Amino acid sequence: MDVKVFATVFITIFLAELGDKTQLATLLFAADKEVNKWTVFLGASLALVACAGIGVLLGQYASQYINEKWLNLIAGGGFILVGAWTLWRA
């Protein structure tokens, strides 16, 4: 395992997920006094693992047809558009 890649992915995803809608939804589910917190944790964890798996599979598939440089440019452009749209709607 490449520890540098692992650390980069972990830190990037961890910071991206802090305070996002997924974390807030999980917080709200866990706030229910009648809900088992381990059930919320396991459900949220499995959902995130499934989403990450889909991302890895789509990334692997896309990389067979699109140059890595172009994938980075497309992803970066997408983030810029989402950020601009968010600022415009604010």
Rank of each mutant, 00 (worst) to 15 (best):
K4L: 14
V5K: 07
V5L: 11
V5C: 11
F6I: 07
F6Y: 08
A7R: 07
T8G: 00
T8Y: 13
V9E: 05
V9C: 03
F10C: 01
F10Y: 03
I11E: 09
I11G: 06
T12K: 06
T12R: 01
T12M: 01
I13G: 08
F14R: 07
F14L: 12
F14T: 01
L15E: 08
L15T: 00
L15Q: 04
A16F: 12
E17R: 12
E17S: 12
L18V: 13
L18D: 04
G19W: 01
G19R: 02
D20H: 08
D20S: 06
D20P: 01
K21R: 10
K21F: 08
T22R: 11
Q23G: 15
L24W: 02
L24H: 05
A25E: 09
A25N: 09
L27Y: 15
L28C: 11
L28R: 15
F29P: 05
F29N: 11
A30F: 05
D32L: 12
K33V: 09
E34S: 12
E34M: 13
E34D: 11
V35D: 01
V35Q: 02
N36K: 01
N36E: 03
N36Q: 01
N36C: 01
K37W: 00
K37C: 00
W38G: 08
T39I: 11
T39C: 09
T39F: 03
V40P: 01
V40A: 00
F41R: 03
F41M: 06
L42G: 01
G43W: 05
G43D: 04
A44E: 02
A44Y: 01
S45I: 12
S45V: 05
A47M: 10
L48W: 03
L48H: 06
L48C: 06
V49T: 12
V49E: 06
V49H: 05
A50L: 11
A50I: 14
A50V: 10
C51R: 10
C51N: 15
C51S: 11
A52V: 14
A52Q: 15
G53Y: 08
G53P: 02
I54S: 03
V56S: 14
V56L: 13
V56W: 08
L57G: 08
L58H: 04
G59W: 04
Q60W: 15
Q60D: 15
Y61E: 07
Y61I: 11
A62V: 04
A62Q: 03
A62N: 10
A62F: 12
S63H: 04
S63C: 03
S63K: 02
Q64H: 10
Q64Y: 11
Q64W: 08
Y65T: 03
I66G: 03
I66F: 10
N67T: 11
E68C: 15
E68T: 14
K69G: 15
W70Q: 13
W70T: 14
L71K: 02
L71D: 13
L71E: 09
L71Y: 07
L71S: 04
I74E: 07
G76N: 05
G78L: 02
G78N: 04
G78V: 01
F79R: 04
F79K: 00
F79A: 08
V82H: 10
G83A: 15
A84C: 13
A84S: 13
A84M: 12
T86F: 15
T86G: 12
W88I: 14
R89W: 07
